[in-house]
């Protein structure tokens, strides 16, 4: 139970930072934290039915759920792709405004057009 509560706290911290933090870089990091909390949630829940690795063999009945691990493999790669593209966009914004502050970017972006 305590593991799930800790994951919930991790989720709240990540979401809070994603919403209220002013630096865009830290927003992307926060997105990573939230993503990790969900991935861990899947993996930990999947391991509640067993403790052996997902290989065929004699320990078959004690195996963790292999399904969630395969799903999370996909989810992690997608998360990495999203992060890389958002960082590229931030590099673009930095090249123009030389700031990571979201309010400044917002204001100056409006002025520019």
């Amino acid at each position: 139970m305590i593991r799930y509560i800790l994951l919930g706290i991790l989720f709240i911290i990540g979401m809070y930072a994603l919403i209220f933090h002013r630096s865009v870089i830290k927003k992307v990091i926060a997105l990573g934290i939230v993503n990790t909390s969900v991935v861990l949630l899947f993996i930990i829940s999947g391991s509640s039915i067993g403790d052996a690795p997902a290989f065929t063999g004699e320990q078959g009945a004690r195996m963790v759920d292999p399904m969630v691990q395969a799903l999370m493999l996909t989810a992690i790669v997608i998360g990495v792709c999203i992060t890389s593209f958002s960082l590229a966009l931030i590099v673009h914004l930095w090249g123009r405004f030389e700031t990571f502050d979201i309010d400044t970017i917002e204001k100056r972006g409006d002025d520019e057009s």
């Binding site: 997105l31 939230v34 966009l89 931030i90 914004l93 405004f97």
Partner: peptide, 21 residues
């Protein structure tokens, strides 16, 4: 490659990734 479109894209990306979580 206008800067405004990068801002718009980043906003869409962040809010929609939050939704995808």
């Amino acid at each position: 490659s206008k800067v405004r479109s990068s801002v718009a894209s980043l906003y869409y990306l962040l809010s929609s990734s939050a939704a995808m979580i």
